[in-house]
């Protein structure tokens, strides 16, 4: 059984149909990517799956449980976590306090110390800046913080929305390395990216989203080799 199963998901903004009934799955242990141009509905999909935007029709099943109508904060407690588009770290809190917020859903916080040490180990930059106000971090550091924060809740499924956006090429490579690492340590990943080349290279499977519809799917390698994808997303 898939860890995440999305069936005929339809989302509206007022009268505009932003998602036209999409279906996809993420198996346990996979890295799955949704690629697509601006406005294709990638972020809408991510926000709808985690309960920030209500679905008009369709179903979202996570870990065998129907979460279509479950509010976001409860879904997080079930083991889904998201690094939102634009990072959205808490600007006025310190790095340490941001990580603490990430652990908010952990009721008995016995492992807090270990968890935070694990994050500092993965992101040494955050350890150096633990007492710095998050708003004063660089874009790359904020991305690391957003990822660290999302990992503090021990997610079964980690969703990342455009983690490479606005980062320098070196940092982009670093971010994709970290995503691979996190996956190797046992976390299932659902990734949304405009950087199709790099994301397909690390993906087990991928879906292509175009104006609210899934138009293509396959393994990362298949899609990277497909003429349609090459033309539209890989610059020829």
């Amino acid at each position: 059984m898939a860890l995440l199963e999305v069936k005929d998901l339809e989302v509206y903004y007022g009268v505009i149909r932003a998602l036209k009934g999409i279906s996809f799955e993420v198996e346990k242990g996979e890295i799955v990517t949704l690629i697509g141009a601006n406005g294709a509905g990638k972020t809408t999909t991510m926000q709808s799956v985690i309960g920030l935007i209500p679905a008009r029709h369709g179903k979202v099943i996570f870990d065998g449980r129907d979460i279509t109508k479950t509010p976001c904060h409860k879904i997080v407690h079930l083991g889904m976590s998201q690094v939102p588009e634009g990072r959205r770290v808490f600007q006025e809190l310190t790095v340490y306090e941001n990580l603490m917020m990430g652990a908010y859903s952990q009721k008995d916080n016995n492992s807090f110390k270990e968890d935070i040490d694990r994050i500092y180990e993965r992101f040494p930059r955050l350890a150096e800046r633990r007492n710095q106000i998050a708003g004063t971090l660089s874009g790359g550091e904020q991305q690391m913080l957003a990822m660290g924060r999302a990992l503090m809740s021990h997610p079964k499924l980690l969703m990342l929305d455009e983690p490479s956006m606005g980062l320098s090429p070196i940092l982009v490579d670093q971010v994709f390395e970290i995503i691979k690492d996190i996956n190797r340590d046992g976390t299932t990943i659902l990734l949304v990216e405009q950087n199709a080349g790099k994301s397909l290279a690390i993906s087990d499977r991928a879906y292509v989203l175009e104006t609210g519809d899934i138009v293509l799917s396959g393994t990362g390698a298949e899609l990277a080799a497909s003429d349609q994808v090459k033309k539209a997303y890989l610059g020829g």
Partner: peptide, 19 residues
């Protein structure tokens, strides 16, 4: 701290599991 988080960014606060 949840109050600070909500006042800064409601959506991000929900993503932390805050009601």
């Amino acid at each position: 701290r949840a109050m600070i988080a909500v006042s800064e960014d409601k959506g991000a606060a929900q993503l932390m599991g805050i009601n």
